[in-house]
Amino acid sequence: MKSLRTTPQVSEWGFPGWLMPINDLVEKYWDEYDLGDIPQTAWDAVTINGEILGVPVVGNSFLMIYRADLFEKHGIKVPETYEEVIAAAKKLKAGESSIDVPFTINLHAAWAWEMEFFQMLGAFDGKFLNDDYTPAFNGPEGVKALEMMVKVAKEAMGPEGLSYSIDDTEIGLQTGRLAFANTWASRAVKMNDPEYSDFVDELKFAPAPAGYPGGKVAASAWNDFYCIPKNIDGDRELIFQVMMEALDLESQTKAVEYGIPTRMKSMESDMVGAYMPAAMEGIARGAGAYPLTPATPLVRTALQEYLPTIMNGTMSAQEVLDKAAASYTAEAKANGYL
C-alpha cells in the first residue's frame, strides 16, 4: 500500500513514527531509477533525523498571475512587492470597470489564512518557531506580515475578494472578473487553455511579490510524496518498486502539462507550461515549506484558530499573534515539546 502525502503530513505522521524509513531502498535503487534526478531539497523535505520517509513525486509553488493587457492599459508595471501590489490594485479598482475584484490572495478559510501568513512571514524574514520550539511568529516580523495581509485584504482585495476561494480565483482570472492574484502554480496550468480561459494571450506570469524591495518572495514551495505506512504487512521492496514505476521519466514528462513533477529531466519537455519560469524563480528566491518539527502542526492549528479574527477589528496584529502564541505554547507544553 502506498499513499501520497504533502509536506505538512510529513511532520504530523513522520515524527510519531507512522511512516516507514526507506533509506536502504533509496540507496539500493538510486542508480537503477535515477533518483539523483530528483533535487536534494525535495529529499530533505521528507527526511527526519536522517530517515528518508518517502519519495518526492510532485511539487507546487506560488506565483503571480496577471492580466498584461489591463496592466498595459493603465500603465502599471508588474508589482514586485506587496506595496506595489496595493498601488496597482487601487489604480485598477479606480479605473477598470470590467473587473469585480482587482487582486486576491487566498483568505477564504482558516487554513488559507495560516498558509498566506506563513508565506508573508517568510517574505519579512520571520519564522514559525525558534530552535527550542518557542514561538517566533509573534515577533516584529510576524506583526509586519499580518499587518501587510490585512492591508492587502482591505486595500487590494476588498470584502468580495476576501471570500474568493482558490477555485474562485482561478475562474475569476479566466473570466476577467479578477485582474491579478498570487496563487498556486498548479492553478496557472489552464490560464492559457482556450477551453477554460477567455484571456489566453493576456494572462501572464511573474514571481510572487516580496515583502520589501529585494526581499524574499511571499511564496511557499511544496512537495507531495509516496510514503509507506510503518505497520504494513506486505513486501516493502515490491511496494517501493511499484512506486518507482509510477515515478518513471515517461510519466513525469507527461505530468509537466499539469503540474511540477520532481524529476528535473522532465522539465526538458516541450510541454512545460509558460508559468514554470515564474514558479521556479520564486523557489530560487526563497520560497520554502513548513519547518520539519513535531511542533509545526500545533503552530498551524493555533494560527488557524486566531489569524482570521483580525478582520473582526477587535484586536491588533500583535494581540492576535500573542493569543495564537499562548494557545500554541499551552499545547506544546502539554505535548512535551516545551
Binding site: 482558516a110 487554513w111 502542526p297 492549528t301 486566531y306 478582520m311 473582526n312
Partner: peptide, 24 residues
C-alpha cells in the same frame, strides 16, 4: 470552512477542532 472570522462555530465544530486539529 472553519473560518473563525464568521464566528459560526457550534458545539460539534468546536469538538471537531479540539479533537482533530488541536489533537486533544
Amino acid at each position: 470552512e472553519q473560518n473563525p472570522m464568521y464566528q459560526a462555530e457550534n458545539l460539534m465544530m468546536y469538538s471537531y477542532r479540539v479533537g482533530m486539529m488541536v489533537q486533544r
